[in-house]
């Protein structure tokens, strides 16, 4: 079956999901950056005290902020976050993630439970690349990770 067909039929649950890193709206940008560093992830979700998502703050937001004012790193993260838009549900087709990324140019897409009431993970560019690579294991996963322009040894007799 072709990749196009698979991404229409298979659900987001088939993608590798990253954990959602949450920070309170009252946290500083510095604290949000520390959480991103700790998790090795380029996005935190800003939540209120009831764990309701209010927005997202990414590496890109951090760079834009630092370019304007380095002092702002101690301001509340909620001042510079991007409001959270629609999440995909875990039972939506993978096609939805492709569409989100294509339409909004987003690196990350939030994934909620089937009811859409709670965030259960993040996916995005890396999740989709892994999905496509898994689709063609014999052609993609055999590729060298190290660059080699020439063969190092003679081949054959």
């Amino acid at each position: 079956m072709g990749l196009r067909q698979d991404i229409r039929n298979e659900t987001v649950a088939g993608l590798s999901l990253r954990p959602v890193i949450r920070v309170l709206a009252t946290s500083s940008v510095r604290q949000a950056a520390a959480k991103m560093r700790e998790a090795g992830l380029g996005l935190v979700v800003v939540v209120d005290e009831y764990d309701k998502p209010l927005g997202r703050f990414s590496e890109r937001d951090l760079i834009r902020l630092l370019a304007k004012s380095t002092a702002a790193i101690d301001d509340p993260v909620s001042r510079y976050m991007t409001p959270t838009e629609y999440c995909v549900k875990i039972n939506d087709p993978i096609q939805q993630v492709f569409s989100r990324m294509e339409v909004y140019g987003r690196r990350f897409v939030c994934v909620s439970n089937e009811e859409g009431t709670r965030m259960v993970g993040l996916t995005g560019q890396k999740g989709l690349m892994e999905y496509v690579a898994d689709h063609f294991p014999r052609q993609v996963k055999v590729q060298e990770l190290e660059p080699k322009l020439y063969m190092e040894d003679r081949e054959g007799a």
């Binding site: 560019q125 890396k126 690349m129 892994e130 496509v132 690579a133 898994d134 063609f136 052609q139 993609v140 996963k141 590729q143 060298e144 990770l145 660059p147 322009l149």
Partner: peptide
């Protein structure tokens, strides 16, 4: 890095794996 003669599959593997 990849070389200009490599295939897009190699770039995909570098990103995914």
């Amino acid at each position: 890095i990849i070389y200009e003669t490599d295939t897009p599959a190699k770039a995909l593997n570098l990103m995914a794996e």
